[in-house]
Nucleic acid binder design. Structure first.
Lengths: 129, 129
DNA sequence: TTATATTTGCAAATGACTTGCAAAAAGCAG
DNA sequence: CTGCTTTTTGCAAGTCATTTGCAAATATAA
């Protein structure tokens, strides 16, 4: 495992929440090229060391967010469109419902996407709304 | 309302399922410029005549999909990554859960995204899997 | 430690989506 | 209708996330 790869994975782990490629590349800019970040994220995801999802945020547009895969199954998140922090909503609570949809409609689910966007508690206070 | 606008809205209505801007622009290519499609979709969404969401599909990448807003509240969809048809999962079933998350975490939800991707019944048979 | 395979950086491409600007169409007052 | 103001359109060009070709650099294996 190369040092760039190691650094990227380490940053994903320390982040404790999903992080966009743009942000990750910025943070590691002294360390490696953005292209290397993209390529290693693909590598990590293919090798089950990271997961990602695409999220659209009004400030930053549509971006893919990555997090380290460390045992604790699939999670869903709330994203604050003011401070851009994520809040963990806990483990995936849709497995059962997805099974139901599968039998009801006959399709096979390969993936699912769920996330919330809005304003977090702290930002609500700061913005006085 | 201009003829381009009318045509776009008509197509959204006749589609009965979300349609990507790319696809919509292709279908209306004899009729108006893609830029006009983009601009009118923004107009329609701002005026509550259309809704959209961002979906990532392995074949077509990340695109925004639009549908006409005709009374019948917020819906969620399954997207087949083979034939690229959508299957309606019915009205939104997350309102209650979202309220719960809001009180639990103190944030205010502005929007939520949920969709499934996979292979539909018909395509499973055709692909013999 | 040399030969082979993988990874990196750079430059350039892709593709969805946006924007500036001047011409064309739509609305509107008289 | 007709002239005038506002909105919309098309075109060209620009963003921005993400990908790709290629040759140099690094890692891995024999």
């Amino acid at each position: 495992m190369t040092k760039a790869r190691k650094a990227i994975l380490a940053r994903l782990k320390s982040a404790k929440q999903p992080i966009s490629v743009t942000e990750l590349a910025k943070q590691l800019s002294d360390f490696c090229n953005p292209v290397t970040v993209y390529r290693n994220l693909h590598y990590l995801e293919n090798n089950n060391l990271a997961t990602s999802f695409v999220l659209h945020c009004s400030d930053h547009g549509t971006e893919r967010y990555y997090s380290a895969k460390e045992g604790k199954g699939h999670h869903h998140w709330f994203h604050c469109e003011s401070c851009h922090q994520f809040i963990d909503l806990g483990g995936c609570f849709y497995t059962e419902q997805m099974r139901q949809f599968e039998t009801e409609h006959g399709f096979t689910v390969h993936d699912h996407t769920f996330y919330l966007t809005g304003i977090c508690e702290d930002c609500k206070q700061e913005l006085g709304s």
